[in-house]
């Protein structure tokens, strides 16, 4: 591990009994959902992580406990270092406290997760879908959501697809 990251990891580990993983010099800290706001506040205020670079999730379907990892990628501009926090969330009605009060950027990013993964954020000020149409069903980035592949039209199957393709009217 990078020497500069050691005190940070140590302090988060002591405070929140977090575990960590390492891969190609990147540090992933694993926290529980209820600790995330405190941890982000600590990292922002004491270790200069001013920037929440990315906030996203990974779906490990069909595994259910935990099904999702919510990923917080933090960057410190002053000290030029990064750390990643992962919060495992269960598959049935996934819920996690919002980080909007710590970083404003979390507002839209969390709406995106709500839209794409159906992860709910407790206390979010504006819980609406952001990218998909309002009337859409399902959450596209979940692994059990189909990609929606349509058969391409070639010469050999042109007529067959032509019949069922919903052409627009004048």
């Amino acid at each position: 591990m990078d020497k500069k990251l050691e005190p940070i990891v140590k302090s988060v580990q002591d405070k929140f009994s977090a575990t960590f993983e390492e891969f190609r010099d990147e540090v992933h800290l694993f926290l529980k959902p209820e600790q995330i706001v405190d941890a982000l506040t600590l990292l922002r205020d004491e270790f200069n992580f001013e920037l929440l670079s990315a906030l996203t999730a990974v779906d490990y379907y069909p595994q259910e406990t935990p099904r999702f990892h919510v990923v917080y990628q933090l960057t410190s501009i002053a000290k030029n270092r990064s750390v990643q926090i992962r919060v495992p969330v269960n598959g049935s009605s996934p819920k996690i406290p919002t980080a909007t009060h710590v970083y404003d950027v979390a507002n839209w990013r969390e709406r995106e997760l709500l839209d794409m993964f159906g992860i709910e954020f407790d206390g979010h000020p504006d819980p609406r879908r952001i990218l998909s149409p309002e009337d859409m069903e399902g959450h596209p980035l979940r692994k059990d959501f189909p990609l929606g592949y349509e058969e391409p039209q070639f010469t050999f199957n042109f007529d067959e697809i032509d019949l069922r393709k919903p052409y627009a009217k004048e």
């Binding site: 891969f23 190609r24 990147e26 992933h28 670079s53 990315a54 996203t56 990974v58 990923v71 990628q73 960057t75 990064s82 990643q84």
Partner: peptide, 20 residues
């Protein structure tokens, strides 16, 4: 089976990729 985050400076800012 691992995940990385890598970022470059695009004309608009930090373009990052979380690749797993």
């Amino acid at each position: 089976k691992a995940s990385i985050y890598s970022a470059v400076e695009s004309p608009r800012g930090e373009l990052g990729l979380l690749l797993e």
